[in-house]
Amino acid sequence: MHQPLDIKDKSSDKNSIKVEAFRKHVRTTKPHKHNNYFELIFLSQGHGTHAIDQEKIDIQPPMVFGIGKEQIHYWDMDAEPEGYVMIFRSDFIMNSHDKALLELANELFSHSHILLSKDESITQFFSLLAKELKELTVSPYVVEGLLKALFGKILQMALHIKPTQDKSKNLYQQLVDLLIENKEYDRKVENYAELLNTTPQNLNAICRKIENLTASEVIAAHIVKEAKRLLAHSNSSISEIAFHLNFKDSSHFVKYFKRHAQVTPGAFRSSSLIEKRN
């Protein structure tokens, strides 16, 4: 039988954004996901690992982690952490009239983690945001201004990456958002192109430019990633997973998964179980 993953929701209907100090007693967690909001985590202290989907990341403060909706993550720390946690719903950024804020957010969340050269001003921006959001009357202009400054500062202090001004990335991010929101797991490029008010050819060109993949390969990568989450973190049968991902039968799903993941679903699940035990 299908066993759903632990889904946590620290947001509320009245608060589209929330900033709090990282809880120091939280060192280990079970694999879970947040399907209603994004999470940005800044650590100025701590040691151990943070797993996001199939990626296990060494904690090397100062650093930030970007966790998208539907991504599965968990902590395994052996030292007291210190930092901040920010959660916000997608509509908070998407409804902003400041295009620069949207571009910075898209750039920031295109990386699972970012190592920083220093953290003093990053800590100050998080602290200012936390204080502002506790005011009885919160100014959206102040919050957006602080967010833009924070996102820009993180990217400025990031090691090995630079902010991008590529406008095509906005359309690519919209495709990613559609893939996350689409629970029918549509695999047709033309359907996404229509929703984005563009052509399949243009969507294909943008995906090649940003990811060096075709639009079809980007869609397949998302579906395979979701399949891997279910295989690794649930006890659903392969047939149940195939049905959940909108495949007509399990054999079609197995062929699709093997073509894109170079391994069968059964073999992937077995290797995931072995890795967990180790």
Score class of each variant (00 low, 15 high):
Q3V: 06
S12E: 06
S16A: 08
V19K: 07
A21W: 08
K30L: 03
K30G: 09
H32G: 10
H32W: 03
K33P: 14
F38P: 03
F42S: 12
S44D: 15
T49C: 02
T49D: 03
T49M: 12
I52G: 02
D53G: 01
Q54V: 11
K56V: 14
I57W: 00
Q60G: 05
P61W: 02
I67R: 11
H73Q: 14
Y74M: 06
W75T: 03
D76I: 05
D78N: 15
P81G: 11
P81C: 09
E82W: 01
S90E: 11
D91N: 13
I93N: 13
M94E: 15
N95E: 14
K99H: 05
L101P: 15
A105N: 07
L108F: 01
I114T: 07
S117V: 07
K118E: 13
L128D: 15
L129S: 05
A130F: 00
K134T: 12
E135I: 04
L136I: 04
L136D: 13
V138S: 05
Y141K: 12
E144Y: 04
L147V: 01
I154V: 15
M157P: 00
H160F: 03
H160R: 11
D166C: 03
D166H: 05
K167P: 01
K169R: 12
Y172L: 09
D177M: 03
L179Y: 01
I180W: 00
E184V: 04
D186A: 12
V189F: 02
V189Y: 02
E194I: 06
N197H: 07
T199L: 08
N202C: 08
N204C: 04
N204P: 01
I210F: 00
L213R: 06
T214C: 04
S216Y: 00
I219V: 07
A221R: 04
H222V: 04
I223G: 06
K228P: 10
A232C: 09
H233Y: 12
S234Y: 02
N235R: 13
N235L: 08
S239P: 02
K248S: 15
H252F: 05
F253E: 12
F253M: 09
V254K: 12
K255D: 09
F257M: 02
F257H: 07
A261R: 07
Q262F: 13
R269S: 13
S271M: 13
I274V: 05
E275D: 14
E275R: 07
K276A: 07
K276Y: 12
